[in-house]
Design a protein around this nucleic acid. Structure first.
Lengths: 348, 348
DNA sequence: CTGTTAGCGCCTTCAA
DNA sequence: TTGAAGGCGCTAACAG
């Protein structure tokens, strides 16, 4: 028995099998022709020593990181977990590791965008809910790292998101067809220095379109935007619901906000749905529990799609050294209206 | 201007600053004496070229990975996200990257345990909710990788978890002091080939203790265990609540299960809390929305603690090459009863 | 088909 | 204080 280091290296295996390290490397890396006997003894040695190739050495040698980065704001956001699961379900089956970055403010975002989007850090990057600005875009392009946007959209990058205008329209149209004529809208900020363009703006456009087609007015105080938390939505809803001529229905940007609206209604002794109909967006687990009518979007699937698109781009880049081939493509995720018990015809 | 590769290497910087690579490395790695002028020109060159050291090269050279792994079952579990956030809040401030592994079945778990717990893969490992078995423990010790358990406990490893017996006792005692005498208990499986020992067993012990102290019976059909999902809890609750002599209160292993219980009650036209009191565990966001009485445990804090303990172990290991110094220490996370509107004195 | 050699980018003795 | 040289473990080009 030769002296072997722990963990064993490729050289230990080579000695053990009486071959050269190169040969071991060859059997490791697939089908390059290695003859029967040599291959056998190498495989035997690998098994005996419990050899596993050192990932860092491979990374350095190959100039690949075998790592996919995920940058997302607000890990706590319910939609994030679902998307991460989707991403993981794809990446977990590959040789890539998944490394996550949570960003909570502008500085952190800029730092991560600059430091993570480098060829030596990740082979690909999935950015969730953050829309890169011009400066970021330049950095990204220069870095040549394949990038996919999920729940955000930019002409220069493959983007995965639902048709928010359609979603806004569906939700609003549902309320209109129930007979509502006074419909409020609550959202996160339409534009925000942190996340960039919000999906809320597009959902508003859908809302607006439906209202206009039905010949309905949108009083300016029926529309409020703020932070995306439940508490903020609750306070916005309180404002709208105490208006002299309050709406009979509210469409909220997200389920979390919609639940905030329901809480505000409860505080004001308004029964949902009899006194107030509420529609949310996302169809998180809580929506089902709360029997909230909502727009279902497959968050998990958006993660899956994002990961798949990214892997494709990485592959394309490896074959033809022309990065960012597919960029700008927009992949829409299906959405559909899920009617539950929070919406009903207006009683007033 | 010299020709520089992109991204620039330490050699490019050296040329640019008319010094040797070693000198650059020295200024990079801190306070090793580098004289004023040399240091200045190196720093200038670094800034001008936008040089960032190649992480993989550092990793290989230093034999460190600058990576912390997190292995958890069920990414979707609400508690996971909170804990991950806690972990991230600590690790994000360090030079370590966070790499996540989602395990969904026994094979995957064993594979990750074997492949991830290696010095060349991670500098430390946080394992959530999974109790390692004897074979895993051997592997872990042999690997010399610092490991911390969160929401699980093992004598050989630093463990972070709440006092589940106390929690079970608190919840049950609350119901008893309200006047309940017939109290059911619903839990995930006490022992499971996948996760190992469940916290549920300990919570049961607390429940049992409180019941016994109060001289109350625990009919065997008042206790059920199964999958930890809402749906499974709902079906278990349905069974218990349709018993000829049904309990007036149910204590559930988790908030998610408690909500399943509430749903079952709703289906059976039992009002919560008037006809049935329900207590949960964890205090996830949904618990507040559902006004569920629950045991609050600081999930975020358990992540923070786990990460801190791990970093300590890594540091200790670096100074004295004696790994796993602190092992076996058990760090308890605070818990407290949060009384909301799902519990009330029994009316029957 | 297989061994030898050089190199990925950095860090760290060892001399000077 | 600084430079030269060698090595981390693996892969790939080039001989044989």
């Amino acid at each position: 028995v030769k002296s072997v280091s722990f963990p064993p290296t490729i050289r230990d295996v080579a000695k053990h099998a009486h071959v050269s390290p190169a040969t071991v490397s060859r059997v490791l890396n697939g089908n390059n022709g290695v003859r029967g006997p040599a291959r056998m003894s190498v495989e035997k040695a690998i098994a005996e020593l419990g050899f596993v190739p050192n990932l860092n050495a491979r990374r350095l040698s190959l100039g690949k990181t075998f790592t996919i980065g995920v940058i997302s704001p607000y890990f706590i956001q319910h939609s994030f977990v679902e998307r991460l699961r989707g991403i993981e379900s794809v990446i977990g089956k590959t040789e890539y590791d998944l490394i996550v970055f949570n960003v909570e403010n502008v500085e952190q975002r800029d730092r991560y965008f600059a430091n993570v989007a480098r060829r030596e850090r990740v082979d690909g990057l999935i950015i969730i809910t953050l829309t890169p600005n011009t400066q970021h875009v330049e950095q990204f392009i220069r870095s040549k790292v394949p990038i996919v946007l999920v729940d955000a959209q930019h002409a220069k990058f493959t983007s995965i998101c639902e048709d928010s205008i359609m979603g806004g329209w569906l939700a609003t149209q549902h309320l209109i067809s129930l007979g509502h004529r006074k419909i409020g809208f609550i959202s996160d900020k339409f534009i925000d220095p942190f996340t960039g363009k919000s999906r809320g703006k597009l959902r508003y456009e859908g809302y607006e379109k439906a209202m206009q087609s039905a010949g309905l007015m949108i009083p300016s105080n029926y529309v409020m935007t703020g932070l995306s938390s439940r508490a903020d939505a609750r306070s916005m809803a309180r404002t709208i619901l105490t208006l002299p001529d309050r709406p009979t229905a509210i469409f909220a940007f997200s389920d979390i906000q919609a639940i905030g609206v329901m809480e505000a209604a409860r505080e004001l002794n308004l029964r949902v749905p009899h006194d107030l109909s509420v529609v949310g967006y996302d169809d998180i687990e809580m929506a089902e529990v709360m029997k909230l009518t909502t727009i279902h979007q497959s968050l998990f699937e958006s993660g899956v799609l994002g990961a798949q698109k990214l892997l494709e781009q990485i592959e394309v880049k490896q074959f033809s050294n022309q990065p960012n081939m597919n960029t700008g493509s927009l992949q829409q995720v299906n959405i559909e209206l899920r009617v539950r018990e929070s919406t009903i015809a207006p009683s007033i």
